[in-house]
Nucleic acid binder design. Sequence first.
DNA 1: TAGGCCATGTAATGTGTTACATGATTAG
DNA 2: CTAATCATGTAACACATTACATGGCCTA
Lengths: 205, 205
Amino acid sequence: MSLDHILLGLLREPATGYDLKNVFSETVRHFWSARLSQIYPTLKRLEQQQMLRSRREPSPKGPDRKVYTVTEKGRAELLTWLRGEPAVGTERFAYLAQLYFMDAIGDIHDTRAFMNALRDHHSRWLAQLRAVEQDIVTTYGDAPEHYADAGFHQFAALRMGIHSLGSKVAWCDETLAAIDRRIAAHQPTGAVAGVDSDREGGLPS
Amino acid sequence: MSLDHILLGLLREPATGYDLKNVFSETVRHFWSARLSQIYPTLKRLEQQQMLRSRREPSPKGPDRKVYTVTEKGRAELLTWLRGEPAVGTERFAYLAQLYFMDAIGDIHDTRAFMNALRDHHSRWLAQLRAVEQDIVTTYGDAPEHYADAGFHQFAALRMGIHSLGSKVAWCDETLAAIDRRIAAHQPTGAVAGVDSDREGGLPS
DNA sequence: TAGGCCATGTAATGTGTTACATGATTAG
DNA sequence: CTAATCATGTAACACATTACATGGCCTA
């Protein structure tokens, strides 16, 4: 149900599906992904449910714009969601699933390459978030407690990304180091292949 | 597509849907969630696609068990997925979306309660993972580079959870402290309500 | 004139959740 | 006798992705 609420939240001011997609890719993308082709039907449905209202406007460039506004009912729904419990427990990390089963390949070098790619991905993303943070701090100062309400909340969400990605980069480094020790420990002794590749050798739950 | 692959990965040994659900809730649950009612149809589909094969067996207790085994095709599919790029970019944090828009409530105390609940959740979960880690270290030693292949990979996945949750607890603490400074800065001065609650006052992208 | 951006969507398919339905065995 | 665990699923609905479809305006 969250895309519904995100769109309601984003519609502080009237906007079109296209506008929302742009705002999305500038901000919300850091913690949520959605395609334009999902946004349009969702807006349509929210209008049917009287959460939104729309009017058509001519556009300077391109076809008519369909501008959406939140109704009272929509705002009430947004507030209900915001006042509810934190929506936890649905996190899914597909790449962790890959790592978890990666012993099936039977070559630790594949795992190394995988972790390297992950490190790279996370550290690029972290750099982006840090740049956004720098902009904010430069413009608004480094005391978020004095930001406007919206800014304060948005900054807090940004900080979570920075903490979280930082810890993931650290984890990648730790794991890469362990992989290297593992490779070093096995390679030079000329150990018999398969000695350690027992697929039954999992961990206890 | 990932539940498919997770089930293929989990089926190192033949097992039933019910067995898989149990293993799931003991291990994979840390990074993926799925209900039994999703597992059954998925197994059925994988069998139709010749990734799995099944046979019926009488059960000591309860109805017949339907035991699934991975076929060559299924194993090939698993390996293809494992050798692919890390599956990143689909992370969704519904609670961050809530926080991001929470200024709409207009009361920072709601945000405080929210962050507190979040801290609580994350620190409980962290404690669980640390307990699992303790068990492993006690049983297998503290040098994961010497674990068997499967254990090594599983331990690495566990470590990511510990890093990541630790950073989230730290983030909650940082944010709670900022909230408290914000409350302290506004409360005693008797500032005019709304002075800081300009909903236009977001952050630049 | 070619490619990108503005701006709208639909159709088909795939994935996931919730609720419902059944029934035997075992431990307290 | 009651509740938990074992063990199977279906049906309806909700949510998301991919591919397809259209077409004008602006810039290089």
